[in-house]
């Protein structure tokens, strides 16, 4: 198995000093080249899970093995795209994409590599622009190019299109699908949008909240391009919604109880 997550637990200590469990007994196995969405309501720990795979957050217990090696720190085998583009504003688009390449490549090689991936996200005409001159969608495409430029085996995406408007998001979905088809990266895609996860992924891991657990693992076997198979998409959407509804009700009733008890 390419990525295996074994008996993973994560606890945080809240401001009163009480431990709270964010992730409980997570077990997952992901094949190389799979596009996997992690879907769940806010607070289910899906972003924390991704951050642990990235090596940015420590585990409380359990382990993550990628390609036979245990994850303890960030590495260039795992590229990450955040909800905000997180581009560095003091360097231009090309230099941003070259950022991860500076150490191991000559300047010429790094430039060529960066240009190749900027072409893939269709931003070849914006090499000299600075991040503040780009729209949100364009910034996010630069961030994707930057993550791809390291040629990682795994692409980790933490609600990458969550802050974009609907039209931009739809366009980026198509672009991401093309990139995935072309590069065959293993993608872990965190989202709270059911339709987004169905549109893009081979598998959907549905997570529940408080504590974060895996509720179910759904295979999406709709042929691509999926826009031609609307009926099947709706069928899966209803199936997923059944799982999520209970979770959302749980969150809502907890919030209501909290309000009345205050």
């Amino acid at each position: 198995m390419f990525i295996s997550i074994n008996q993973l637990n994560k606890q945080f200590t809240d401001k009163n000093g009480n431990p709270s469990t964010v992730l409980k007994d997570i077990n997952l196995a992901i094949e190389k080249g799979e596009f996997v969405s992690i879907l769940g309501p806010s607070g289910c720990g899906k972003s924390t899970l991704l951050s642990i795979v990235a090596g940015l957050t420590d585990v409380t217990s359990g382990e993550i093995i990628v390609d036979g090696t245990k994850i303890t720190k960030p590495g260039k085998d795992r590229g990450m795209v955040f909800q905000q583009a997180a581009l560095f504003p003091w360097i231009n688009v090309l230099e941003n994409v070259m950022f991860p390449l500076k150490k191991e490549m000559s300047k010429k090689e790094a430039t060529d590599q960066a240009k190749k991936y900027l072409k893939m996200v269709q931003l070849s005409n914006y090499l000299e622009h600075y991040p503040h001159e780009l729209s949100g969608g364009m910034q996010q495409r630069v961030a994707i190019a930057r993550a791809l430029a390291m040629d990682p085996d795994i692409l980790l995406m933490d609600e990458p299109f969550g802050a974009l408007d609907e039209q931009t998001r739809t366009r980026l979905h198509d672009q991401l699908e093309d990139i995935w088809t072309e590069t065959k990266k293993t993608v872990l895609f965190v989202t709270h949008s059911i339709s987004e996860s169905i549109k893009l992924s081979d598998r959907i891991i549905v997570m529940g909240t408080r504590p974060g657990t895996v509720l179910t693992d759904i295979k999406v076997d709709i042929p691509r391009p999926r826009s031609e198979h609307k009926d099947k998409m709706i069928e899966i959407e209803e199936h997923v919604m059944g799982y999520l509804k209970k979770e959302i009700d749980k969150v809502v009733s907890e919030e209501l109880n909290h309000e009345t008890s205050v």
Partner: peptide, 21 residues
């Protein structure tokens, strides 16, 4: 903190992280 996290996923750490980010 997001800049630092992003840079870490791209292999930057220590003095290199300080100088470049």
């Amino acid at each position: 903190p997001l800049y630092i996290r992003a840079a870490q996923t791209m292999g930057a750490k220590g003095l290199d992280l300080f100088i470049r980010v």
